[in-house]
């Protein structure tokens, strides 16, 4: 995969490049500021962009803004945002550019190399990856909301995994239940969130959005 990497800390940028290289990916550009990132994204047309939210020159949310702008120019460009903090508001803004091929995870997830690369693969192939912390924040925060309230404890856990972009098999593994049980739970979640029966993949994303978009 051809990857554009934006990260202002030299050590992390270097480490990430090496990690990605070790897994057989090619980092075509590694930049350390917002304007340069925007230029590289249009020039290189990478398979995925891995972007730190906070970048020079302003050290605020340049990375996010560059990512959103790039996705508006090149719809469907996969973007994985890295940040020291996860901010639900930013997750919503990122998802407003389309819910396929986006990810938003904490930087520390990098420390588990294999899982991190799996996340990259998922996003690059059009999946969604939200950090468990974004999701759990919204779930605990919104437990007064009626649709969320109607979910059982188990269904909520399943939805949390869904939002992280896991497959049914992945969810089964994480929650120590059978794949069949996962399918059943998901089947219960959709109507409770008021999602119409349509193709399942789309509904999975919508279920995640149901979280974030309120």
């Amino acid at each position: 995969m051809r990857i554009v990497l934006a990260e202002d800390h030299f050590l992390l940028r270097d480490g990430l490049s090496r990690l990605l290289g070790a897994f057989g990916h090619e980092v075509v550009a590694a930049v350390d500021n917002g304007p340069e990132l925007q230029r590289q994204l249009t020039e290189q047309e990478p398979d995925i962009a891995i972007v730190d939210v906070r970048l020079p020159p302003g050290f605020s949310d340049e990375g996010l803004r560059a990512a959103v702008a790039a996705r508006q120019q090149q719809p469907g460009l996969p973007v994985l945002l890295l940040s020291q903090y996860v901010e639900p508001l930013y997750a919503r803004e990122l998802l407003s550019t389309g819910s396929s091929g986006v990810g938003y995870v904490l930087k520390e997830r990098v420390s588990n190399g294999a899982e991190f690369v799996a996340t990259i693969d998922r996003v690059a192939s059009g999946g969604t990856a939200m950090d468990p912390e974004v999701v759990s924040k919204l779930v605990t925060g919104k437990n007064r909301d009626e649709p969320m309230n109607s979910l059982t404890e188990r269904e909520r856990e399943v939805l949390e995994c869904l939002a992280q972009g896991r497959s049914n098999a992945g969810i089964a593994e994480a929650l120590f239940i059978t794949e069949k049980a996962v399918a059943k739970h998901i089947g219960n979640i959709f109507p409770k969130l008021g999602l119409p029966p349509s193709d399942t993949d789309n509904r999975r994303v919508l279920a995640v959005l149901a979280y974030l978009d309120r």
Partner: peptide
Amino acid sequence: DAVRSLAMISQLR
């Protein structure tokens, strides 16, 4: 935006 973010994770609508 900071207050909007608070609102997003608040238990209240």
